[in-house]
Amino acid sequence: MKEQRTQLSTLIFSIGEIYHLFQKTILASFSRPFYFKRLIEQINYIGIGSLSITIVIGLAMGLVMTINFGYGLKKFGGTLYVPAVVSLSLAREMAPLFTSLLIAGRVGSGIAAEIGAMNVTQQVDALRALGTDPIRVLVVPRFWASVISLPLLTALSCALGILGGLVVCMNEFDISAGFYFNKVFQTVKIADYLSGLVKAMIFGGIISIMACYKSFNTVGGTKGVGLTTTWVVVMSSIMILITDFFISKIFIVFWTN
């Protein structure tokens, strides 16, 4: 509990510096030199590398949510609303949130361990000493790879979730595929999908920037790298949950009437 509290207070104290790193990353993104090869490498690691867990989480969300909503609504004779409820919550909330939380675990810890270890073995200093900018070389590729990959992964998990829902609806609740898709397309508007994708993008930015920030401040050898990894996974997950509430609120007020 005490450890949790100190972790939280470090998060609050670091918000300013994290924002500063974000600013520098954006500035560095739009001026030379660019590192396209590193960006491709990171998209490969963060995006392609996360495909399997995205498939699992997508299908699992669809199956589990549909079963629960299905039997829940059946009591009130509302089975016909299941496709609408499932697809809407997947597109707007569940797919971006769960995919991002999983990626925060996989990618956040990966970045933290890699750059954190580089920092304690002076490789980050070496980058600077060789006349390059660690933000350009290390942060920019990871930031954009996350911001590009997360919406795509979210789209995939959302689509698979809807398919998972279809399987359950057909087998458990005698809903036909035609009716299911009809309801899905009627209910979920482009704006709903977009709001989910924009969320995923923001979460991608949060994960990568927080991971890079903490890694650059890693001290204390291998133990320090371990602490950094834990901090990144816990704090970026908390940050995602907090931001999610505010973004949802903003979208509901300004976007979807």
Binding site: Q122, Q123, D125, A126, A129, T132
Partner: peptide, 19 residues
């Protein structure tokens, strides 16, 4: 700094090779 660091280089105790 990059300009200066091309002329004055620092050789780290550990080597600090990119692993």
């Amino acid at each position: 700094y990059p300009r200066i660091r091309k002329s004055i280089s620092y050789s780290f105790q550990s080597g600090a090779l990119f692993d």
